[in-house]
Amino acid sequence: MTVLSEWGTYFPQLLQGLLVSLRLAAISLGVGIPIGLALAIANGSGGRVVRSVAVVLVEIGRGMPALVMLQLVYFGLPSLGVSFASFTAAALGLTLTTAAYTSEIIRGGLQSVPAGEVEAAEALNMSRFDTLRFIVIPQGMRVAVPSLMGFSILIFQGTALAYTIALPELLATAYSIGSSTFRYLSVLTLAGFMYVAITVPMSMLTERVELRLSRHL
C-alpha cells in the first residue's frame, strides 16, 4: 500500500476530527475574546477592587499551562461534584486561557488610543461608557487584530491538547488510527499536514493584515 492510498483511507476520519478541532477553537475564541475584552476594560478603567480582581484572574489564566487547565476542569472538578463532557470541558478550559491571554493583547490595543481623543470625548461631555464604546474600543480592537489572529492560531493548535481528555479531535483521531494500525508515523504526518493546512495560511493572512494596518496608521 502506498502512503498516498493509505492517507486516502485515513482522510475522511481525520477530517471529522479536524472539524471537531475547528469547532472547539471557534467556540473558545468566540466566547473567550469578549471575556478578554471585559477583563481588559476592568483592568484599564475599573475601580481598585475590580482592577485587582481582573489582574489576578489574568495572571492565573496566563501563568497556568493550558494543559493543566484542561486536566483540572475535566479530571479535577468532578471531585467537587461538577462534571462536564469532554467537549464542554475542553471549551471551558481553552475559553479561560483565551480570555486571560487576549485581555492582555486587547489592553495593549486600548492603551494605544491617544489620550487626547479620550480627553476630547470627555470635553464633549460624552459619558465614559460612550467614550469606550464609540471611541476607544473600535480603534483599540483594530490595533489588536493581528495579535488576536496570531493568538487564534495558537488556540487552534491548543485544541490538540484535548486529546488528553478523550475528545475525538484531530490528534486523538490520528492516534487511535495509529494504535490500531501501528502506522503512527504515516497517520500522524497526515494529521500534521492538516494542521499546517490551517495554520500556515492563517499566519500568512495575519502578516498581510498586520502590514495593511500598519500602512494605514
Binding site: E117, A120, A121, A123, L124, N125, F134, P138, R142
Partner: peptide
C-alpha cells in the same frame, strides 16, 4: 460636571478628532 461642560466647548492644539 455635566452641566458645566454643557455650556463649554473646547478646541485643542492637537485637534483630537476621532480618526476612525
Amino acid at each position: 460636571v455635566k452641566q458645566l461642560r454643557r455650556s463649554l466647548g473646547m478646541v485643542f492644539q492637537s485637534f483630537n478628532l476621532f480618526p476612525h
